[in-house]
Amino acid sequence: MQMIDWQRAVIKVGSALIAPEGNGCSIRYLLALAEFIQHSVQHGKEVVLVSSGSVAAGAGLMKFDLAQQVSIPQKQALAAVGQSYLMQHWQKLFDNQCAQILLTRSDLESSKRVANAKNTLNTLLQMQAIPIINENDSVVIDELVVGDNDNLAAQVAVMCDADLLIICSDVDGLYNKNPQLHADAQLIEVVETIDDSILQSAGITTNPIATGGMKTKIQAADTAMQAGINTLIVNGRKAATFEQLKQTRQTGTLFFAASSRMNSMLN
């Protein structure tokens, strides 16, 4: 396993970890992650969190079944109900103050808004607050997602000049084939080039509350790699994942950005 050094990381956490039962919020898979983030901040590192979960949080509060067909207005309403509860959920896991930032696609396509968001992020990090970013689901008019929060996290990582993007999944990383269907599937530990064979390894999520899947995680990794940012896809359900990350050891699948800026990060 590689040793990975970093100073500023963007960590993406999806609804499958925040709301494993499909509605409401749970700390079941978040305690080890929160402890890793707190540990990192205490050791002088900077962490930006990209968090899904507002729709699932709202569904839990409103006793709404997301397994049924849900319209865009219903999802937007549930997001409006759930977003503040989602922030409360995260805040109780940290000693540091959390700060909410909601973005839309138009924010990321405007150079002026990107500059303003970047300045806000940098100032929050200087204050040792933990920025928590989500898409502004309640006001998006075409779809709920920028693409999804995997790609949003990659765009945030580029925007704030992160050294590392960590995408938390419910599997150990990228496999050469679907491990749920193939017992002989093997974990791909390092990816240096995203080619057709890597794309073919990605499947489509069957989780009704998730908007991404491995395909969007690879897309996000590609965006980050092109900007010289290393990406890790890790199993966010395993506490051992974050123990390894505390020791700056690779876990999961590392998408290695082969730029001169990042080559010095790996020993």
Rank of each mutant, 00 (worst) to 15 (best):
V140K: 12
L181A: 08
A185Q: 02
E143P: 03
N136H: 15
I141M: 11
D161V: 11
I132H: 00
Q128Y: 07
P131D: 04
D142Y: 06
N136T: 07
L144S: 05
E135L: 10
D184H: 12
N136I: 06
I166R: 00
D142V: 08
P179H: 07
V146C: 11
V146Q: 04
I166Y: 01
N178D: 10
D148N: 14
I167M: 06
V139K: 09
V171M: 00
D148C: 11
N134Q: 13
Q186I: 10
S169M: 02
Q186M: 10
I133D: 02
S138I: 05
L164W: 08
N151W: 00
L152D: 03
N151S: 13
Q180C: 07
K177N: 06
I167E: 01
V171Q: 02
I141N: 10
V156K: 01
V139Y: 07
P131W: 01
Y175K: 11
L165C: 10
G173T: 12
V145R: 13
E135N: 13
D161S: 15
N136M: 07
Q126N: 11
Q126H: 08
L187S: 10
E143F: 13
V171D: 03
V156E: 00
A183C: 09
L165D: 03
A154E: 03
V145S: 12
D148P: 03
L174A: 11
H182W: 02
D170W: 05
Q180T: 09
Y175L: 12
Y175E: 01
D150F: 07
A183I: 10
I130N: 00
L124Y: 04
V146A: 06
L125M: 09
D161M: 15
T123K: 10
T123N: 09
Q128K: 11
L144Q: 01
N149Y: 05
V158H: 12
E143N: 15
L152A: 14
N149D: 01
K177A: 07
D170A: 09
N149L: 03
D170L: 06
V140G: 01
A183R: 12
E135Y: 14
L165R: 07
E189Y: 12
L125Q: 06
N134F: 06
L124N: 02
I133T: 04
T123M: 06
D170S: 08
S169T: 09
G147N: 14
N176M: 08
S169E: 00
D170R: 13
L125E: 02
V171W: 00
A154S: 14
L124F: 06
L187M: 12
I132T: 04
Q126D: 11
A185N: 03
E143Q: 14
G173Q: 09
V145G: 13
I141R: 10
C168M: 14
V190H: 14
L144A: 03
C168G: 06
Q126S: 11
N178L: 03
L165P: 03
Q186S: 10
A183Y: 10
K177H: 13
L187A: 11
C168K: 05
L174S: 08
I133P: 00
A162C: 15
